[in-house]
Write a protein that binds this DNA or RNA. Structure first.
Length: 472
RNA sequence: GUCCCUAUCGUCUAGCCUGGCCCAGGACACCGGCCUUUCACGCCGGCGACGGGGGUUCGAAUCCCCCUGGGGACGCCA
């Protein structure tokens, strides 16, 4: 028996199947994550499939954007990516099979006729469904047509046991003959999703809640094509703060937009998984934790509201507890985006350490780190007016001379130096530290003064103090 | 409009299946305090919810029904 990290290999096969008509959004990322976690946990297989049957709207840029985002989140697939656009032959075969078996037919109704019927039905309070006009016609006019799947007769309802929502059933009279092939011959979503899931051996379909209504008709298609019906798990939607479907109006919905704002992938993963899933009172989960602990049983059934504040809190947590060397690497692009070069400056890793518990995002950390690397400190107006005044001259002189005698800028020597400064000037620590902070950083908020001094190093620190002294 | 799904603090949620341990627990946010060389971190405390109405029961957040709210679907998009 094969084993993988002590976990029994299973035949679980799941998939994530985005359509490349835009970037990977928050909701899709969560669906992908759930799929990934379950596959990893059970030693199953996670398949990635690009649903690009809508040739007009699918783009390579979107495919790349989705792949990038999956990669960033660390959700690598075991198989794929497969492209539906490369499988049209297979779909065509299956459509023909349905026609041959009398389970599908040509429909010559025009778009306009259909729209009119739909509108009329809505107006009368009926469900707008196809009336079956072409269902029994035997002629083959020389006109454009679509292929419709004929709803099976003699069946009352379709039901399935959703792994998240429980039993869901729909009466057949609520359904109609859906289009499986367009006028141009290309297959539509409901058909290809069934064929691919079946042909790829997917036995558990985890997807968004918005597909619940498609499931009954897809089950009918599975049956008509002679396929085994997989299990389904419909994950609730993610809503905006106004309880409306999450959209750009609510802020960034693209996963990669968060990366650009300085979020860490582990924060995003942690946030996403907790939106709809829980494990007692625990809040912090590493990917390994999740692979061990995730379960569909603990996924909630109702829609959730996306809460950027909590994401931010998680991000701050992961910055606080993250590896400084890695964070330093991640920080570089944010610094260069601000036009800051770090090569000649103080040790970037040390700078990061001093800022870890003060930054919620990497962008914020870059803001906070900027002062370390400037050639000439620029003073904030208010800070300068308050702390860089002529009367401070003696303090700065004392600081300059005492720090100048420090061999090493370590905690011990700095403390000793400050003790002397405070003694000489008869000032309390705060009265010394704050002006010095302005001289060193240009502002009134920064890491602790000892840290700043140490990160900067003696030479740079003394130069900055002299610079300040010169302005008094 | 019709159908499907859903309903615990502002938000994410625990508890619900297997009624009493719940005058409902945790987290984010918010407010207050402590710590403190600034800003933060951290710590302590506070505010804050079982949508409504009927049942069932000795007892209901938990079981049943109705109502209401919310979401989704109704496409030659996925």
């Amino acid at each position: 028996m094969f084993r993988k990290q002590g976990v029994q290999m299973s035949d679980l096969r799941v998939r994530f199947a985005p359509s490349p008509t835009g970037y990977l959004h928050i909701g899709g990322a969560r669906t992908a994550l759930f799929n990934y976690l379950l596959a990893k946990q059970q030693g199953g297989t996670y398949v990635l499939r690009i649903e690009d049957t809508d040739v007009a709207r699918s783009t390579q840029e979107s495919v790349d954007a989705i792949l990038d985002a999956m990669n960033w989140l660390g959700l690598s697939c075991d198989e794929g990516p497969f492209y539906q656009s490369e499988r049209f032959g297979l779909y065509k075969e299956k459509v023909q099979q349905l026609i041959d078996e009398g389970k599908a037919y040509r429909c010559y109704c025009t778009q306009e006729e259909l729209d009119a019927k739909r509108e009329a039905a809505m107006k009368e309070g009926r469900k707008p469904k196809y009336d079956g006009t072409c269902r029994n016609r035997t002629d083959h006019p020389d006109a454009p047509y679509v292929i419709r799947f004929k709803l099976p007769e003699g069946k009352e309802e379709v039901a399935f046991d959703d792994r998240i929502k429980g039993r869901i059933s729909v009466r057949l009279e609520e359904l109609d003959d859906l289009i499986v092939a367009r006028t141009d011959g290309t297959p539509t979503y409901n058909l290809v999703v069934v064929i691919d899931d079946a042909e790829m051996g997917i036995n558990l379909v985890i997807r968004g809640d918005d597909h619940v209504n498609n499931t009954p008709r897809q089950i009918l298609l599975y049956e008509a094509l002679g396929y085994a019906v997989p299990e389904f798990a419909h994950v609730p939607m993610i809503l905006g703060s106004d309880k409306k479907r999450l959209s750009k109006r609510h802020g960034a919905t693209s996963v990669m937009a968060y990366q650009e704002e300085g979020f860490l992938p582990e924060a995003m993963v942690n946030y996403l998984v907790r939106l709809g899933w829980s494990y007692g009172d625990e809040e912090i989960f590493s990917m390994d934790d999740l692979i061990e602990k995730f379960s569909l049983d603990n996924v909630g059934r109702s829609a959730g509201v996306f809460n950027p504040e909590k994401l931010l809190w998680l991000n701050a947590h992961y910055i606080k507890t993250g590896d400084p060397v890695r964070l330093a690497e991640l920080l570089k692009p944010f610094l260069s985006a601000k036009g800051i070069a770090t090569e000649q400056g103080p040790d970037l890793v040390e700078a990061v350490k001093s800022l870890q518990e003060r930054a919620s995002t990497m962008a914020e950390m870059a803001d906070g780190a900027a002062f370390y690397f400037v050639d000439t400190v620029e003073y904030e107006e208010k800070a300068k007016n308050k702390f860089l005044k002529a009367e401070q001259k003696p303090v700065f002189e004392a600081i300059l001379s005492e720090l100048g005698t420090c061999e090493l800028f370590n905690e011990e020597q700095l403390e000793a130096a400050f003790a002397k400064i405070m003694d000489q000037t008869e000032l309390k620590f705060g009265k010394v530290a704050q002006p010095l902070r302005v001289a060193l950083t240009g502002g009134t908020a920064s890491p602790s003064i000892y840290e700043v001094l140490q990160v900067l190093g003696k030479e740079r620190a003394l130069a900055r103090i002299e610079q300040a002294l010169a302005t008094l």
